[in-house]
Design a protein around this nucleic acid. Structure first.
Length: 191
DNA sequence: AAGAAGATTAAA
DNA sequence: TTAATCTTCTTG
C-alpha cells in the first residue's frame, strides 16, 4: 500500500475516515478512524522514541511504515499505533478514536456492561479494548495479519480540525505542536 | 532487584 | 479529583 510512503503528518490526516478492521477468532470488529495523533520520533519530545531512544518497547518504531506498535499505559490500558516514516526513522501515529462499524455487539462484550455505543471507542484505551488489541499485536504488519486497513469514507479538508496533542504535559516545547487531527463535529472523537 | 512514572479511564 | 493497576525504563 503506497499509503505508507506518505510523510507522517500527511498520513495522520489521511488515515481519517479509513476503516480499521480486526479479524479475531472471537469475531470481527471495525470502525472508521476519526481522531489521530502524530509522533515524530527523534525531534519530538512527546514521542517514546525521542532522541532515537531504542529499547525493547520502542524497537518496533524503527521498523517499516505499516508496522503495528501497541504499548501498555497507566497499568490498565493498551494504546494502538501505526508506525510511519522510513525504516530507522522512529515515527508513529496513535489512533485516538474510531466510529464503530462492524461487530458492535462484540465490542460491548469486550467492554463489559456498557450501554452507550458512543463510549465504546472514543479514546485510545477504549478503542483498543473494544477492538481486542493487546501487546501481542506489537510488531505485526497492517494488512498481513488479523488487522487490516481499508478505504472507508472520504473526508474533505474542510471537515478536519487540527490542534495540539492530549496528555503530554511533560513534553516541554513539543506540548503545543499541532499534531492532532480529528473530524469536525464527529461525536466519536474523544472528550 | 527495586522503584517511579506514564500518549488513560471511570467513578465520585 | 482520584484511584485503579502494571509494563517499561532507570538506577543501584
Amino acid at each position: 500500500m503506497e499509503l505508507w510512503n506518505l510523510p507522517t503528518l500527511i498520513l495522520a490526516r489521511t488515515l481519517l475516515g479509513k476503516e480499521l478492521i480486526h479479524e479475531s477468532k472471537d469475531g470481527t470488529t471495525s470502525g472508521y478512524i476519526v481522531e489521530t495523533e502524530a509522533y515524530l520520533g527523534p525531534e519530538d519530545r512527546a514521542a517514546h522514541s525521542f532522541g532515537n531512544r531504542r529499547t525493547a518497547r520502542t524497537e518496533v518504531m524503527f521498523q517499516e511504515a505499516g508496522t503495528i506498535y501497541t504499548y501498555f499505559i497507566y497499568g490498565m490500558h493498551t494504546c494502538f499505533n501505526i508506525v510511519s516514516g522510513p525504516i530507522n526513522k522512529p515515527e508513529a501515529i496513535l489512533i485516538r478514536a474510531i466510529e464503530p462499524v462492524q461487530g458492535i455487539e462484540r465490542m460491548k462484550e469486550r467492554r463489559g456492561a456498557l450501554k452507550k455505543e458512543i463510549m465504546l471507542t472514543n479514546g485510545p484505551g477504549k478503542l483498543s479494548k473494544s477492538m481486542g488489541f493487546s501487546l501481542k499485536h506489537s510488531g505485526q504488519k497492517m494488512n498481513s495479519s488479523s488487522i487490516l486497513l481499508q478505504d472507508g469514507i472520504v473526508i474533505s479538508d474542510d471537515e478536519i480540525s487540527v490542534g495540539p496533542r492530549i496528555n503530554i504535559n511533560y513534553a516541554e516545547e513539543a506540548v503545543h505542536y499541532p499534531y492532532r487531527f480529528w473530524i469536525k463535529n464527529n461525536p466519536y472523537v474523544s472528550r
